[in-house]
């Protein structure tokens, strides 16, 4: 009986937390944007986007290099090393760019958002905003949400571009693949709407989910040091799982049936 009760209780808690998450997001994004909020959003884009550039560029470079190395050793057996360009580009644009960017973003920016908002709650800053007749949903939550949604697709594109250059560095400059075939076969194979746009759509969906989880976990955190540490961990775990799960669904929808 206790076991059954705990299943029911956990289900109820999960549903209620979904409800709170929806209410928070609705309160934040349905607010009429003021010019002040645009300035705050730009500030946040700097914090979550520009300050994440280093980790995105370095990771993109290495992932491109590793893919070229692995791809070359397989393709060269069949004399197909000329196809290295499209292999690297397609894997990055369709999968690795959006997914790895989202995972890195969750670790770098998502955890920071959760901790920041959680601490604001713990130190009564959110409460005091409310008492000053300033809605924390508009003032704190909305700019951070939009900043994440705007920044992440751009980061994913930068990740893919750097990765393709990294692949060029290893494949062409070090292993001797013909530069002409690296670029021209890539250009012939990669399709704008099917590959590039689908990758951006994926990244956009991940951006919404990861940023939403991060700000909600902060906003809903138990305002103690233990609660905030738990919320930060949950942000990274839940957003990683959500990204990987959603990636499968989106891939199936986009590339599954032709």
């Amino acid at each position: 009986m206790n076991y059954l009760q705990s299943i029911g209780q956990n289900t109820l808690n999960a549903l209620m937390s979904f409800g709170r998450a929806f209410l928070m997001l609705a309160g934040a994004i349905l607010a009429i944007p003021q010019s002040k909020n645009i300035r705050l959003t730009v500030q946040q884009i700097y914090v979550v986007g520009v300050q994440s550039l280093l980790i995105i560029i370095v990771s993109g470079l290495f992932i491109g290099m590793v893919m070229a190395l692995q791809g070359y050793t397989i393709l060269v057996n069949y004399g197909a090393e000329g196809s290295l360009g499209p292999m690297v580009a397609l894997s990055l644009l369709r999968e690795l760019g959006p997914v790895v960017t989202a995972l890195l973003f969750a670790g770098r920016a998502g955890s920071a958002l959760t901790a920041e908002i959680g601490l604001m709650k713990a130190t009564e800053q959110l409460s005091s905003l409310e008492m000053m007749a300033v809605d924390p949903l508009r003032r704190i939550i909305a700019p951070r949400f939009w900043a994440g949604v705007i920044a992440m697709p751009m980061l994913a594109l930068i990740f893919s571009a750097i990765g393709i250059l990294g692949g060029h560095l290893v494949g062409v400059d070090w292993l001797g693949v013909d530069a002409g075939s690296y670029w021209s076969i890539m250009q012939a194979t990669v399709e704008w709407d099917k590959d590039v746009v689908n990758g951006i759509i994926k990244s956009f969906v991940f951006a919404i989910v990861v940023t939403w989880i991060a700000i909600f976990k902060g906003y809903d955190a138990i305002p103690t040091s233990e609660g905030i540490s738990q919320a930060t961990t949950q942000t990274v775990v839940y957003s990683s799982l959500a990204v990987l799960g959603l990636d499968f669904v989106l891939t199936a929808l986009m590339f599954g049936i032709n």
Binding site: T123, E124, Q125, S127, S128, E130, M131, M132, A133, D135
Partner: peptide, 19 residues
């Protein structure tokens, strides 16, 4: 409520200054 809150003010125990 927000109009009313503009007329009241609260000093939190921690101060709750924006850090």
């Amino acid at each position: 409520l927000y109009q009313t809150r503009k007329k009241m003010s609260m000093l939190f125990q921690s101060g709750a200054l924006f850090t």
